[in-house]
């Protein structure tokens, strides 16, 4: 648990000092939103949930890729690999830091998205934040694991989406389904939430166990 908190604190400290990841992710996701706004018809209530999640996933791809390159740049990975603790805690620390950073980006993106597409999100803001936060646990779990694998390959920028997107499909379908329910009817059934909780749990447990071998290689 100490290692989880230490890695989380370290990643957030570095991000607060440099702010390069957050700025890049916000700018990129807003650009994506603007592209959708310019290229799609005005009434996008049906497609809005999908568009919002496309912007989120693109932003996540940008930020998650940086998550482990930070460790490899100065061979700092040797520091975390030698921690006298199960390496799964290192994974959870990095995934938690990614989740917090992504959440900040998602909040800004949602505000701009609502303004641009003229959506009233205030009535469902709390529940929408809950759905996005819950879905992002799975997104960050599988994204952090994929980033750890991709960072050691020659084509890391290409490898990350190739590894991450197929694995992300269950989380993404649950997230879009729940977001659509909220934006179209203002209500939310328990099925997509249950599905997201189960998917998050599976992704977290599998990633925790597999990370040891990824770091070894």
């Amino acid at each position: 648990m100490n290692v989880l908190l230490a890695v989380l604190w370290k990643d957030l400290t570095i991000e607060l000092r440099s702010r390069d990841r957050v700025v890049a992710m916000v700018v990129f996701s807003l650009l994506v939103v603007m592209v959708f706004h310019l290229s799609l018809p005005a009434d996008t209530r049906d497609t809005a949930p999908g568009l919002l999640w496309i912007a989120y996933v693109f932003a996540a791809l940008l930020g998650l890729g940086r998550s482990f390159s930070l460790e490899l740049e100065n061979d700092a990975v040797s520091g975390i690999a030698l921690a006298p603790a199960d390496r799964g805690w290192v994974f959870l620390g990095k995934a938690a830091a990614n989740w917090i950073i992504l959440s900040a980006v998602q909040a800004v993106t949602a505000l701009v998205f609502a303004l641009v597409f003229d959506l009233d999100l205030m009535a469902v803001a709390g529940r929408l934040a809950g759905v996005v936060a819950l879905s992002s646990v799975g997104l960050c779990a599988i994204g952090t694991l994929s980033a750890a694998v991709a960072v050691r390959t020659r084509f890391r920028e290409v490898m990350l989406p190739l590894l991450m997107l197929p694995l992300l499909w269950p989380v993404l379908s649950g997230a879009v389904h729940a977001t659509r329910q909220l934006l179209t009817s203002g209500s939310l059934s328990f099925e997509p939430i249950q599905f997201l909780i189960v998917t998050d749990g599976i992704y977290l447990i599998v990633s925790f166990l597999v990370f040891e071998y990824i770091l070894d290689e």
Binding site: I14, R17, N74, D75, V77, S78, G79, P84
Partner: peptide, 16 residues
């Protein structure tokens, strides 16, 4: 826990 390791490439975070 019993080992201190200094790799050839320093394992530092330059922003800290």
């Amino acid at each position: 826990r019993c080992v201190g390791y200094l790799p050839e490439q320093l394992p530092l975070y330059l922003e800290m």
